[in-house]
């Protein structure tokens, strides 16, 4: 077998393998269908082929061949659009919405995974070209592990404490501890909510976390995750049972109310903790370098 074929094959193999490793179905419930698996594996294969061919092309020497990497970037942006379109069209019939921020986050993740696949294939073929198959294999393992680390995002547990909270009514207004949620008019529904509802309070650990859960997209993602994992009693004609996430404007703490199919507080807390911190919501105002309260006093 000619040498360049071995180099390309090693690259493609490593890239496809890394796509398989990154393609896991998780609590986000996406993708959950065999067809999605196939299309993502195939796209991963194409990405790794593009990455793997680059080195032999340069060695040939066919320098212009490298320009097709630009084409690849274009192609993968298309993947992001494809994911976004799919999820947005599913969103219309979703009883508890994912929210546009969450969709954007998922779509961006799918695009980024393909870049990682391409990088893995490229690095593996480079190593195989100059160091032989064993070096190539080692590089592949390192790159796959690295991709896993890069793709595992932050979760809410790392920035917030989640504690049980109490549901009550102040007149018609549903409260989670002292946080005002929504006005529920029907007495029958109020009784049902007190009987079957669950609530938690999400306490941000610092200013950065507070600004993250201040984001409506992040809060919608929390409600979605809780509703997916515990089920929801909501239906199209029972809007009162929509899971809600509202903030205490004084403290920045956030309350979650849900009518779960399965009333289990521990699982609710676990579900909320598992919610991914969205890239679009994550912000770090504390790192902006503004003088803090203490500094001001010192200056004064």
């Amino acid at each position: 077998m000619p040498e360049y074929l071995i180099v390309i094959a090693a690259g493609i193999l490593a890239g496809t393998l890394s796509r398989i490793v990154l393609l896991r179905i998780d609590y986000r419930q996406y993708p959950g269908y065999p067809h999605s698996y196939i299309s993502h594996l195939l796209l991963g294969f194409i990405a790794s082929a593009l990455g793997a061919v680059a080195i032999p092309a340069v060695m040939a020497p066919e320098y212009t061949a490298v320009t097709f990497l630009a084409l690849a970037a274009q192609q993968f942006r298309e993947i992001r659009n494809m994911e976004r379109r799919t999820l947005e069209s599913l969103e219309r019939t979703e009883l508890v919405k994912r929210g546009l921020d969450y969709i954007e986050g998922i779509a961006r993740t799918f695009e980024a995974r393909n870049y990682l696949v391409m990088a893995t294939a490229f690095a593996t073929s480079l190593a195989t070209q100059f160091g032989g198959l064993s070096t190539g294999g080692l590089t592949a393992i390192i790159m796959i592990l690295l991709s896993r680390v890069l793709m595992s995002g932050d979760i809410l547990e790392n920035i917030c404490d989640v504690v049980p909270a109490r549901l009550s009514f102040q007149g018609p207004i549903l409260m989670v501890d002292e946080i005002n949620m929504v006005n529920v008019g029907l007495k029958e529904r109020r009784e049902k909510i007190l009987e079957n509802g669950l609530a938690v309070r999400i306490k941000p650990r610092d200013g950065n976390a507070r600004s993250t859960i201040h984001d409506m997209g992040q809060r919608q993602a929390i409600a979605f995750t809780a509703a997916v994992l515990l089920g929801t009693k909501k239906d199209v004609n029972i809007p009162e049972y929509t899971p809600l996430v509202r903030k205490n404007p004084e403290t920045g703490e956030v309350g979650l109310y849900i009518m779960p199919m399965e009333k289990d507080l521990d699982r609710l807390i676990a579900a909320v903790k598992l919610t991914p911190v969205l890239e679009s919501a994550s912000s770090k105002p504390l790192l902006a370098g503004l003088p803090s309260g203490k500094d001001k006093k010192r200056m004064g």
């Binding site: 006005n183 008019g185 007495k187 004609n237 809007p239």
Partner: peptide, 20 residues
């Protein structure tokens, strides 16, 4: 009042709020 509110909520797929 309560019954009308419940029926209308179901028919209109909308939420009932109490103005007290």
């Amino acid at each position: 009042l309560e019954r009308l509110a419940l029926y209308l909520s179901k028919i209109l797929k909308a939420m009932v709020h109490d103005l007290d």
